[in-house]
C-alpha cells in the first residue's frame, strides 16, 4: 500500500500544515508586534548557531519551548509533534558524523569503538560523538527558535516586515501567492481524493496506482484553471500590486514582558558562553 501511505502522509501533512496556520492565529502572542517576535527568534537563532555551545543550545531549547508552551499557550501536544518532525533528519545527519569508515585499515589510537574486517574498518571517535551531540542540540534549539516565530506569527505579517527590509516586491508577492495556493492545492487534492474514494478508487493496490495518477493530473489541471481564473479576477479589480501599505495594517505593540524575557534569555546565554 505504497500509494495509500503516500496519501496518508499527504493528509497528515495537510492537517499539520493547517494546524500551524491555525495556531499562528490562535495563541496569546498573536497580538504582539511581529517585528518583536521576529527579532526574538532571529536573535536567539544567531546566538545558538554562532556560539555552537552545548549548554547554550540546551538553555535555548528549554527556554524557547517553555515560552511557546506556557506563555504563547500553544498546545504542548502540537508543539511536541512538530518538534519531533525534524528528528529523523537530524538523527540521519548525526549518524554520518559519528561513524567513520576507512578502507586503509589504520584505526586511530583514540577510537572509542571499532569493528573491522579485511578491507573495511568502521570506528567511532570520542570527539566525533561530542561533535554529533553538539550538532544535534544546536539543530534542535535552532528549530525551536524558528517554531517560536512560525507558531505565533501569521505569514502575511512577516511579508510587511520583508518589505521594510527592502526585499523586492515581486518576491514578497510570490511568497503571498504561494501561501494562498498551498491551501487551494491541498483543498483540491483532498476533494479529489474523497471523490475517488467514494467511487472505490483505492479498492486494490493496482487501482490505487491508477487513481493516484489520475489525481495528480487532475490536480495540475485544476491548479492551472484556478490560476487562470484568479488572473481574470485580479484584472477585473484593477489589481496591479498587492502589498498592503503600513497604514492599513492593524498595529500591534511591543510587549514588555516578552522584552524582559528576551533580555533575561540573552544575559543567561552570554553568562553561559563566558563560563
Amino acid at each position: 500500500m505504497v500509494t495509500l501511505s503516500v496519501i496518508c502522509a499527504e493528509r497528515t501533512r495537510k492537517s499539520r500544515m493547517l494546524n500551524i496556520d491555525y495556531i499562528a492565529h490562535h495563541n496569546s502572542l498573536h497580538r504582539v508586534a511581529s517585528s518583536q517576535k521576529l527579532l526574538f527568534s532571529i536573535g536567539a537563532l544567531l546566538i545558538v548557531t554562532i556560539s555552537r555551545n552545548n549548554v547554550v543550545a540546551l538553555w535555548t531549547l528549554l527556554f524557547m519551548s517553555s515560552v511557546i508552551v506556557f506563555y504563547a499557550k500553544v498546545p504542548w501536544k502540537a508543539y511536541g509533534t512538530l518538534l519531533l518532525a525534524p528528528l529523523g533528519f537530524s538523527l540521519a545527519g548525526i549518524g554520518t558524523i559519528i561513524v567513520s569508515i576507512t578502507f586503509s585499515g589504520d584505526v586511530p589510537i583514540n577510537s572509542f569503538w571499532h569493528v573491522s574486517n579485511s578491507f573495511v574498518t568502521i570506528y567511532i571517535l570520542t570527539t566525533d560523538v561530542w561533535r554529533g551531540l553538539n550538532v544535534f542540540l544546536v539543530a534542535f534549539s535552532a528549530t525551536s527558535c524558528l517554531y517560536f516565530l512560525i507558531l505565533t506569527t501569521p505569514i502575511y505579517e512577516v511579508s510587511y516586515l520583508l518589505q521594510k527590509c527592502k526585499i523586492p516586491t515581486i518576491i514578497i508577492e510570490l511568497i503571498e501567492l504561494i501561501y494562498r495556493f498551498i491551501f487551494i492545492f491541498l483543498q483540491t487534492a483532498e476533494q479529489l481524493y474523497i471523490t475517488q474514494q467514494a467511487r472505490l478508487g483505492y479498492k486494490s493496490f493496482k487501482m490505487s496506482f491508477q487513481s493516484l495518477v489520475l489525481l495528480i493530473s487532475a490536480l495540475f489541471r485544476s491548479i492551472f484553471f484556478h490560476y487562470e481564473q484568479m488572473t481574470l479576477a485580479m484584472k477585473t479589480r484593477n489589481i496591479e500590486q498587492f502589498i498592503i501599505p503600513e497604514v492599513y495594517l492593524s498595529k500591534y505593540k511591543w510587549q514588555s514582558i516578552l522584552l524582559i524575557l528576551f533580555i533575561v534569555y540573552i544575559i543567561v546565554a552570554l553568562t553561559l558562553i563566558i563560563i
Binding site: Y156, E176, Y179, H226, M234, K235, N238, I244
Partner: peptide
C-alpha cells in the same frame, strides 16, 4: 474596471489575500 465591478461565480477563484479585510482592501488600494 474602476466603474464596472464583477463578482465571480466561484468565490474561491476571486479571493487571493490572506485575510478577509485584506482582500476587501486590495480593490480600493488600487
Amino acid at each position: 474596471r474602476q466603474q464596472v465591478g464583477l463578482v465571480f461565480q466561484e468565490a474561491d477563484n476571486q479571493l487571493f489575500a490572506s485575510t478577509v479585510k485584506q482582500d476587501i482592501l486590495y480593490g480600493p488600494l488600487n
